[in-house]
Design a protein around this nucleic acid. Sequence first.
DNA 1: GACTGGCACTCAACTGGGCAGAGTGCCAGA
DNA 2: TCTGGCACTCTGCCCAGTTGAGTGCCAGTC
Lengths: 357, 357
Amino acid sequence: MPDESKPDGRLIDTRPSARPLDERRLAVLRAIVQDYVGTEEPVGSKALVERHNLGVSPATVRNDMAALEEEGYIHQPHTSAGRIPTDKGYRLFVDRLAEVKPMTAPERRAIRHFLEGAVDLDDVVARTVRLLAQLTRQVAVVQYPSLTRSTVRHIELVSLTPTKLMLVLITNTGRVEQRMVDCPAPVGEALLGDLRARLNGMAGGCRLPEVPTVLEDLPAGFDPADRPAVSTVLTVLFEALAEQNEERIMLAGTANLTRFGHDFPLTIRPVLEALEEQVVLLRLLGETADSAMTVRIGHEIAYEGLNSTSVVSVGYGSGDQSVAKLGVIGPTRMDYPGTMGAVRAVARYVGQILAES
Amino acid sequence: MPDESKPDGRLIDTRPSARPLDERRLAVLRAIVQDYVGTEEPVGSKALVERHNLGVSPATVRNDMAALEEEGYIHQPHTSAGRIPTDKGYRLFVDRLAEVKPMTAPERRAIRHFLEGAVDLDDVVARTVRLLAQLTRQVAVVQYPSLTRSTVRHIELVSLTPTKLMLVLITNTGRVEQRMVDCPAPVGEALLGDLRARLNGMAGGCRLPEVPTVLEDLPAGFDPADRPAVSTVLTVLFEALAEQNEERIMLAGTANLTRFGHDFPLTIRPVLEALEEQVVLLRLLGETADSAMTVRIGHEIAYEGLNSTSVVSVGYGSGDQSVAKLGVIGPTRMDYPGTMGAVRAVARYVGQILAES
DNA sequence: GACTGGCACTCAACTGGGCAGAGTGCCAGA
DNA sequence: TCTGGCACTCTGCCCAGTTGAGTGCCAGTC
């Protein structure tokens, strides 16, 4: 019927979806995201026009909103409510509409100062994670500098009983791994000293993943009677190197989960459960690109319990190499520019601190 | 007026509060605690009589309740509501009305089996804390075996640079502490070996707190030129021994906080905050009596954020000595007998596992 | 063709009254 | 000392009516 009323009978497709997203629509989306993050409430056309000078009337904004909704960037909880960004909307916001908000100079000084007070590796990690939680007011996760990228600083062998040794591996990042070794035959002090010296001579300074290759032929250099013991020690050492699971992480800011939303126990429970699963968190951080900052939003996260959260993560490292990851977990409705700024800044300064020590 | 009606005119004080708590009143309190823990709702006189055969009518129970309320063991959220136990009521319940509920044989087997799968100390602690959280469905806390009660198994010195050493302390509980030592003068391999041998000879097997006394005179036995370096090493070693703060704890079951109550964010927030403060948790466990089980209820807990929770804790250890504490934190409205049973059982089996390894 | 003002419509959220039910305290009587 | 009965108090729930924010659509203007 409306079609008939057109004099020329031509069907004019005025559905907004038929047009590409133009500048103003993006501006509307940006404004929606900003307002929603601030107020936590669905944002309507009128309020939007009042708070941002978009230069158009609410009615126009409404048309734009209808278009954005059709494209799946925003959605309405119910008719006659304002709009809420979807995961897709946040994605567009992060990719094209937002800029990482740099920390102010005083903030940067404070970060640096706080991290410089650390006395050892544990303390660095502990301070980092607390700082990040405090800056972003969200849940922070920091992975301990991984063994993979580290180098061997020292390998120590300690005889506990004649057939029982303790193997201690010290890396350049200050991390210490210890393992018990049950030898098939008693190991004398002479052999122990010899083995210790050769291990350090050959593997000292090596990247951890290269160590097995470097030490492969070590048993051949020993008296045949001693070889079983040497092999056992090597086996344990290689195990320790390979054991990626041992990667530890530290958490802080779980109390910030209480700021999550209204529908409480339902949202928070799966998140708390996820946070207890080191495996989940490690995988989460593991998916982070090495150098660039990674933002995963809502359903982009593989783990179901975190589908109503977003994760901002980035690698950090001493020097130019990234040795581990850190990040924050918060509601999808988070301040992305600010969070990204804080994450980036903290990662940078931790890297510096590690490089110095 | 009622007084006048008595023929002899004697004033008979019939206020319930004037009488000591007799058997039935205690039974009523016990029933109230049990019902409230089960239902989470104020319990009334009628329901109480129906569910427990107290052998009296609701009206009688009401009188008893009035007495209990006057004594401060229970209270009413509002007129015309049932009663809720107070902290004082729970205290009486725990002290006089409840018995620790022992684990069943299959449960004990399962606990033992689960803990036996652990591969090292970290794993023992991790398994313990998870197990405890799962059994009690509350937040579990386990303190790492403390240095204080442990003995020295081995002290290792590693030369990193001529003036930089790494000191590694290994205890009989399998714990490893490392410290960097900056020496005032270069330390040769000969001195290092000598020092290492003497340290182990003199301190090996000692209780950690006794080590400073034992090693006090060590520098005197060395060449005067070497004494500064030896002293430095000792200083660092003693620091490491003294550093109680370094006591670590492990947490699990925070997701169980979601089962806390109705008035959510308000209750849970301070608890989450407290759980992040290792200091608070350590002090909490520190107040536990060494061997006996300790139950602290609501306001008995010094830390304000935990005033709506109860803490059940106990020491555990290898052999007969307690080396650390463990416990659970839950709402004051918890199943005390069951929780205490689980805590006791887990502590016992961890002790056994540690003694064996 | 793009924007705007106006209009009818929808729906969540709030309000107030009325009702049911659980629970109490008190009292007189067994 | 206990019990049954009674009047009373509250909370929780349901229901209907109202408000207000927000929408979609349309006709008109630049």
